[in-house]
Simulated scan of single mutants.
Amino acid sequence: MATIYYTGCTLDGFIASPEHSLDWLTSRDIDQDGPMAFTGFEQQLGACVMGANTWQWLLDHDESWGGTPAWVVTHRDFAPVEGPVTFTDASVVDVHAAMTEQAGGKDLWVVGGGGLAGQFHAAGLLDEVWLQYAPVTLGDGHPVLPAHVELELLEVARNRDFMCGRYAVVRPAAP
């Protein structure tokens, strides 16, 4: 089991525009069955977590949530939904423990945003980062990971328009 931050980003390191738009991402060509694509990635998932802005984006775009148990870390009030979605303001340590229990040995997905992924990293809970780089720059927006994170490149692939990278989080050596 690994805790993985899997996301698309621009070449200049943003996951969304300042207005939370993903138009730059959804207009790009990707083979959903190709290398490092979401279809294969989601088969290894047992639970996921996202922030309030990501959940709001799903609501605003009439995207339904599938059957993967999900936690939404938020201080906002959202209407209850059908399905395995838990709204919480608990710490990422507590959320991670609940996700791990629910996942049955499968991987955990940090959906977004970058700040939430940074919290998982700061707590020593982030194992891998998978980035699908789109051939576009925004110049401003919401950063992919607004924290200092050391990474080791594990795998690289091209999936049509996207340059995909899989990285291991490098943990500081114990004193």
Rank of each mutant, 00 (worst) to 15 (best):
residue 48 C to E: 13
residue 25 L to M: 15
residue 33 D to A: 13
residue 34 G to S: 02
residue 52 A to S: 15
residue 29 D to T: 12
residue 35 P to N: 07
residue 52 A to I: 00
residue 46 G to P: 12
residue 34 G to K: 04
residue 30 I to R: 06
residue 27 S to A: 14
residue 36 M to W: 01
residue 25 L to A: 09
residue 26 T to W: 13
residue 40 G to A: 11
residue 50 M to Y: 05
residue 47 A to C: 01
residue 28 R to Y: 04
residue 29 D to H: 13
residue 25 L to P: 10
residue 56 Q to D: 01
residue 56 Q to N: 04
residue 29 D to K: 13
residue 33 D to C: 08
residue 50 M to C: 09
residue 50 M to H: 07
residue 31 D to Y: 09
residue 23 D to W: 04
residue 26 T to S: 11
residue 57 W to T: 00
residue 58 L to D: 05
residue 32 Q to G: 10
residue 23 D to K: 06
residue 27 S to W: 02
residue 54 T to H: 05
residue 40 G to T: 07
residue 43 Q to R: 15
residue 26 T to D: 08
residue 50 M to E: 11
residue 24 W to N: 12
residue 33 D to Y: 07
residue 41 F to L: 06
residue 32 Q to V: 10
residue 53 N to K: 12
residue 53 N to A: 14
residue 47 A to S: 08
residue 24 W to G: 11
residue 45 L to W: 07
residue 54 T to C: 10
residue 44 Q to W: 11
residue 42 E to A: 10
residue 30 I to E: 09
residue 39 T to Y: 10
residue 54 T to L: 05
residue 36 M to A: 11
residue 27 S to P: 05
residue 41 F to T: 02
residue 27 S to Q: 14
residue 50 M to N: 06
residue 26 T to L: 13
residue 26 T to F: 14
residue 41 F to W: 06
residue 49 V to A: 14
residue 24 W to R: 10
residue 30 I to D: 01
residue 37 A to P: 05
residue 55 W to A: 02
residue 28 R to F: 08
residue 34 G to Y: 05
residue 52 A to M: 01
residue 49 V to L: 09
residue 39 T to C: 08
residue 36 M to S: 06
residue 32 Q to L: 12
residue 38 F to L: 13
residue 54 T to V: 13
residue 56 Q to S: 03
residue 31 D to T: 11
residue 57 W to E: 00
residue 40 G to Q: 05
residue 42 E to N: 11
residue 42 E to F: 12
residue 55 W to G: 01
residue 43 Q to G: 11
residue 54 T to I: 14
residue 25 L to K: 04
residue 55 W to K: 01
residue 28 R to K: 15
residue 38 F to T: 08
residue 23 D to Q: 13
residue 37 A to M: 08
residue 50 M to V: 05
residue 42 E to Y: 08
residue 24 W to D: 08
residue 24 W to P: 12
residue 55 W to H: 14
residue 51 G to D: 00
